[in-house]
Structure formats: C-alpha cells, structure tokens
Design a protein around this nucleic acid. Sequence first.
DNA 1: AAAAATATGTCAACAGTGCTGACATATTTT
DNA 2: AAAATATGTCAGCACTGTTGACATATTTTT
Lengths: 170, 170
Amino acid sequence: MPDRKRNPEIPIRTAVANEDGIDFTLIELFFFAYRDFTSDPDEMLADYGFGRAHHRVLHFVNRRPGLTVAELLEVLKITKQSLARVLKQLIDTGHIVQLQGPRDRRQRELYPTAKGRALALALARPQSRRIHTALQDAGAGDRAFVEDFLKAMVNPELRTQIDASPRNQE
Amino acid sequence: MPDRKRNPEIPIRTAVANEDGIDFTLIELFFFAYRDFTSDPDEMLADYGFGRAHHRVLHFVNRRPGLTVAELLEVLKITKQSLARVLKQLIDTGHIVQLQGPRDRRQRELYPTAKGRALALALARPQSRRIHTALQDAGAGDRAFVEDFLKAMVNPELRTQIDASPRNQE
DNA sequence: AAAAATATGTCAACAGTGCTGACATATTTT
DNA sequence: AAAATATGTCAGCACTGTTGACATATTTTT
C-alpha cells in the first residue's frame, strides 16, 4: 500500500470510461445538451433583465393558464419566497396577471397577457428549432422515442404533473 | 380592439400548445428530465458541503485526467474566478491534485485522487441507473439514438470537445 | 360564532454559483 | 529585455435558491 505520509495524494492518470457499467457518455452529453438548450432563451431574457427563473414561470403560466400560486410552486418545486421575486417582476412588467379564484377567493389564478404569451413563444422558438434540427440530424429514430425516454427520466411520482400540460399532438 | 385604459391587462385563458409548430411538450420534458437527473447527485453532494459545480469539475477531471486549468475552463464555459472557489475546495479535501505541467511549468495539470475517483463514480451511479432504466422503460428505440440526439442538441462548435472524452464503447 | 386551517404575501438573512475588474507571480515566447 | 501567457487572488455584484418568522384574508372545522 502507498505511503500516505509521503504520498498523501497520488494522482490517477487513467480516464474513467466504463467502470461499473456507468454510462459517462450519456451523462456528459446530457449536461452539454441541456446547457446549450437553455442558452438561447437565456440570452434573450437578459435583454428584459430576466433570468431563467422568469422563463420557467412564464412557460408554465402559458401552458396551464389559471393555475394557482400553490400549483405553480408544486410544479416548479421551489419555495414561495423564491417565486415571489420573479412573479412580482413578471406581473409588474405586464406579462402575467392574477385573478382572484372564483371558488376560493384566497387563491390567485395566474394568466399570461398578450405580452406574456408573445414572450413565451419567442423564448420557446429557438429551443423548439434546436430540438427539431437535432431530431433530423440524429440517425434513425423518432420524436416519440425521445418523448418516452425523457418522460421515463422523470421521477415517477411527478409524471402525473406532466400530463397536466396540454399535449402536442398532431 | 380592447380598451387599454380600462383593461390594460387582459388574461389569456387558452393554453399554449402548438402555436407556430413549437414543441412545448419536449421543451417541458427536457426541463423535468434534467432536473430529476441532477437531483440524485445533488443530494449526495450536500453531505460533503459540495454543490453541482463541484460535481462538474470532478466529472471532467476524472474523464480527462491531466487536463489543464485553461482546458477545464474551456469545457465548463465559466470564468477562472468561478472555478477557483470550487477547485480549491476539491483540492483541499483531497479529491483532486495539481501537478506542474511537464512541458510548460506554468500549467497545472489536474488529476483525481483515489478519493476523487470514488466520489465521481458514486455520483455518476444513480444518474447512469436512471438513464439505463429510462432507456428500458421507453418504447422502441435504442441508446445510440439518444446519444445521437443529445449530441445534435449541442452547439456544433462544441462537438469537438465532446469527442475529447473517452468513449463508452462496449 | 369562535377557532383552526389554508392560500398568499412579505421581510430578513443566508448559500451557491455565476459575473466583471483589477492586480500579482511565475514562466515562456518574442 | 520586453511582451505574452497560465494561473491565482481579492473585491464586489447578480441571480436564484434556501429557512424562519410573521401578517392578512378567507375558508373550514368545531
């Protein structure tokens, strides 16, 4: 065994590549892919003084108009204090409006305005284009498989939420 | 047209679903999938007082042992000031060691220690398991297509970097 | 009707990770 | 000898997440 007193830190010079059958290639690709996937809207958001968090809120309010604050927190898995900052900005800038819940007046239903809808579409456009191009560039295989794969990557208990969004069926 | 004086913010009540042929379903799934994909290591890292940034550094140092600080910055696309904080912690905790570059003594080659290798493997394990399970659960389609798709999602000019990592060929 | 629970909002402090700008040191290149 | 390069470091800032505490309005329970 190595002399830890003299060589407390022995450098490992071999690259990790398949130990224990771990798929480092896909792990790494997922990181690169997601980073570039978010880079397009990130740049656009900077012009508005918004960040990625604003994008997420805007996205889900457009996908599920009328969802309550509590529902939005549940989908995003963040705290209300985190949401408050970005939601306030989106309301102040006229991208989102709040309506008092019809049944329960404590609730605040969130809706996009025309401005908010337009921004959501503008942000999604380059992302959708990237996905579409990638599907074409990738070899044999179809969009349905990617959808199934990504859905299977999500924690089972959250897959119900996914189905709460309107389908993209054609 | 609406009276903007009285109704400055008209809520849109229809969900966005396919406007302009935008694939909101995959956009949304990519968000959920990546969030859950990173959640397993995130929890483990908390025990070490580390964050996601530490994971990335550890991953690439294990994938490309001996890479220099400049190369690491290039792969991660962050500034040296951002890297400095997390790299210092990984070195101080004995997960990574620096060796003076053999040709250029200004350079610092980064290597994982046995401890660093072990942690990298431990962090990758649940991620790889999730990918593997998802591939099985997803319908007809194979791993190669997912790899091709993810690679095609990455900015073209960065695909060279990807090939710098050892392949996962079996 | 009063009490408890719920939905939301807000204030304050803090952590992690990114940024820019400025400057220092060692080493290599010109 | 001078300039360029690789790395390190200090300081301050932004964004987005956290916890804890407390306030208000409304609904539900007792």
